[in-house]
């Protein structure tokens, strides 16, 4: 029969056997990285809006409270997207000729609402409730980031279940005092003791926070 394979075949087949292990393992590892990447989670992605609305200007610079526009945030699951009327409370007087605000005026005149695009979109099988999180002392900026810095709004948290659970398992250090709940900037560096004190202050029972039914009905 003589030699069927060239001497190099020994090395080639050994490399192939190694690849047989490395490729599947590497694929799985790469896939896990991709699933956590901004590309999949939508983190840090600036969503195009009908109007170039700046949260930084309206909150940090001129000091409008979050609840002025997101008016149902304290007593409803949904924070609320303001109707055009809310914009016009100021903009019927201010910057009335600005090109940037033309879609707002048009909406006001025609009576058709502005189609704002969602920045934070959770799956429908997650029953997220804004009011219960605020009542429990979770500040806006804990999940939405430093809104006071954002000229254009983007998603700061990955919004994965892993991320939700990281807080549901140890909520203390993520809570804020009542006075700062609606601050446009997060308060940095809470100690463990402060966290414990806040848990007690808000009367949070941590035992059921990781039950499936806490978020999925």
């Amino acid at each position: 029969m003589a030699q069927i394979f060239h001497a190099r075949a020994n090395t080639i087949i050994r490399i192939c056997l190694a690849l047989l292990l490395i490729v599947p393992a590497g694929t799985v590892a790469a896939w896990m990285v991709v699933m956590r990447s901004d590309y999949v989670t939508g983190r840090n992605e600036t969503v195009t809006q009908p109007v170039m609305f700046s949260h930084r200007h309206h909150t940090a610079e001129i000091g409008i409270d979050c609840r002025y526009c997101h008016s149902s945030v304290e007593d409803s699951a949904f924070a609320g997207i303001p109707p055009t009327e809310t914009c016009m409370t100021c903009h019927s007087q201010l910057f009335t000729e600005a090109d940037m605000l033309a879609p707002v005026r048009q909406s006001w005149v025609s009576g058709t609402r502005l189609n704002w695009n969602r920045v934070h979109d959770l799956p429908d099988y997650v029953y997220f409730n804004h009011s219960v999180h605020l009542a429990g002392g979770v500040a806006c900026t804990t999940c939405h980031g430093a809104v006071g810095e954002m000229r254009l709004t983007r998603q700061v948290a990955p919004l994965t279940m892993e991320w939700c659970l990281s807080c549901h398992r140890a909520p203390g250090k993520n809570l804020s005092p009542r006075a700062t709940l609606y601050d446009p900037f997060p308060t940095e560096g809470k100690s463990a003791e402060e966290g414990h004190a806040l848990l007690a202050e808000y009367g949070i029972d941590t035992s059921g926070l990781t039950d499936c039914s806490a978020c999925h009905r």
């Binding site: 030699q3 190099r8 075949a9 020994n10 087949i13």
Partner: peptide, 15 residues
């Protein structure tokens, strides 16, 4: 193993 190329395979009789 695998050793696809080996002196053993050179003589035809070894098959």
């Amino acid at each position: 193993l695998p050793t696809l190329n080996h002196p053993f395979f050179v003589p035809a009789a070894t098959e």
